[in-house]
């Protein structure tokens, strides 16, 4: 059984061939064409490289798509870390305590409610007003996309109710208005996710 070691009998080494594959540079390129040992070595390294590509393809496929949950989780965490936003004060029992919610945690919550709502997806979300001042009047602006076939007015109204309830429980903001703007209609090309026909206008 032939086991390719580093040094070839022709005087070249597999290390040189390895570098040649990456850079295209080698001391005497003319030798390569005529040397069976070098040809065998190169073929072996090329087979390995092809196999490496197969492994890469399999691994990337296994890693999933950038639209999958694992990436969404990472992006959600990044948002909370990188853009906490303003600090919203909460009532404290002890005068020496300071308690806050981050603006980012509240807008992420608003987005998740809108995303989990049937037929809608959240876009931009803003808390308008001085949220750092307890009791200040706050307006919430949410942009949503509605899946084609869902009645937009009805979706927006239902979402507004849901958000109002949630903000009442999870924050101490004085919410004066929740404005919902439908900025897009989403078409589902795949038959798998067709919305209910009964919701169609």
């Amino acid at each position: 059984m032939k086991t390719p070691g580093d040094a070839l009998e022709c005087g070249h080494s597999l290390a040189e061939l390895s570098a040649y594959l990456d850079t295209g540079e080698i001391a005497d390129p003319a030798h390569l064409d005529s040397c069976p040992e070098c040809q065998a070595g190169l073929a072996s390294l090329r087979r390995l490289s092809e196999l490496g590509n197969e492994l890469l393809t399999a691994d990337v496929a296994e890693a999933g798509s950038g639209g999958d949950d694992w990436m969404q989780t990472i992006l959600d965490n990044l948002r909370l870390e990188l853009r906490p936003g303003r600090s919203i004060p909460l009532r404290a029992e002890d005068p020496q305590d300071t308690l806050w919610e981050t603006e980012g945690s509240v807008s992420a919550l608003i987005r998740s409610v809108a995303d989990s709502f049937p037929g809608t997806a959240a876009g931009k979300c803003r808390l308008l007003g001085d949220i750092t001042e307890p009791g200040a009047g706050i307006t919430v602006d949410v942009e949503i996309a509605v899946v084609y076939g869902h009645a937009m007015e009805e979706r927006a109204a239902a979402l507004r109710n849901e958000l109002a309830k949630m903000l009442q429980v999870q924050t101490e903001l004085d919410i004066q208005a929740i404005n919902i703007t439908v900025t897009d209609v989403l078409e589902l090309p795949a038959p798998a996710m067709t919305p209910n026909t009964e919701d169609q206008p």
């Binding site: 909370l80 906490p84 600090s87 909460l90 002890d94 020496q96 305590d97 300071t98 308690l99 806050w100 919610e101 981050t102 980012g104 945690s105 509240v106 992420a108 919550l109 998740s112 409610v113 949630m166 999870q170």
Partner: peptide
């Protein structure tokens, strides 16, 4: 004697 600060960074409904 202590001052305590608690920051809510994430809310999962």
């Amino acid at each position: 004697p202590a001052v305590v600060e608690v920051l809510v960074a994430k809310i999962e409904a």
